[in-house]
Amino acid sequence: MLIPIIGLILGILVGLLVPIDIPISYAPYASIAILAALDSVFGGLRALSEGHFDVNIFITGFFINALLAGFLAFLGDKLGIPIYMAAIFAFGVRIFQNLAIIRRHMIDRLFRKNE
């Protein structure tokens, strides 16, 4: 559990040190990429705790989700329909689901240790 948190902190530090600028017109894409990354992190943690983590599925899942979400945002931009909402919705639901499952696993483990 410690290594991902270290990774996050490192990422924030590098982001603070290296001035990366996202143009405002790309803000919806960036927000969707952030959601995709969050979704992947929680999905990966869940899979790890359930013991069926697969490197290939994790990596491809991350990139393909991000690409599809970006494509939807682009398409929505061109058509004037906020299709990226679909991606936000799907990712949001999945994040909460995965979080709930991770929480259950953690509680299970805690109680098993106590018993």
Binding site: I3, L8, L10, I20, I22, L48
Partner: peptide, 24 residues
């Protein structure tokens, strides 16, 4: 460990994007 390192990598990206988005 492998899983954790991969997730840490994605977390790294996440942190990077979070900061960039926050800044913009």
């Amino acid at each position: 460990l492998k899983g954790h390192i991969l997730i840490a990598l994605v977390c790294f990206l996440l942190g990077l994007m979070l900061v960039a988005q926050f800044r913009s």
